[in-house]
């Protein structure tokens, strides 16, 4: 059914739907983030040497998050924080998983204000 709907949508527009990979986590992991790369690289003799990063994972519970289009705000507003490496939203479990840049912390008050600012109800850390 989904395939049919996607074909219908693309036919309606007369051109293909371009977009990023559905797996945002995977995609972000392979894309070049210059700022982040500089934080995690050792520049020796002009060559960048990648360091392994083991970011801390935070899982939060959010109430009211039912529409993927409306929940884009949560992902966007968390993603633009310097402490955050990646964000994954799961509408089935109503959870948001936040991967932090190594050594960074994100106070719970900030987490709550981002969730509230996106228009949802913060239900606490998992």
């Amino acid at each position: 059914m989904k395939t049919i709907m996607i074909l219908a949508a693309t036919s309606l527009l007369f051109f293909p739907v371009y977009g990023k990979s559905q797996d945002n986590m995977k995609q972000k992991g392979t894309s070049h983030n210059h700022k982040m790369d500089h934080q995690n690289h050792n520049h020796k003799d002009g060559k960048a040497e990648a360091k392994k990063v083991s970011p801390e994972k935070i899982i939060i519970k959010v109430k009211g998050m039912v529409c993927a289009f409306c929940a884009q705000g949560i992902q966007k507003n968390f993603s633009k924080r310097k402490e955050v490496k990646d964000v994954k939203v799961d509408l089935d479990t109503m959870e948001v998983t936040i991967l932090l840049v190594k050594g960074q912390i994100l106070p719970e008050k900030v987490i709550e204000s981002v969730v509230t600012g996106a228009g949802f109800k913060y239900m606490g850390l998992k």
Partner: peptide, 12 residues
Amino acid sequence: TPYIDPFDGFHT
């Protein structure tokens, strides 16, 4: 909706 897709999916 005829199917439920994940957050990053294509929704109809």
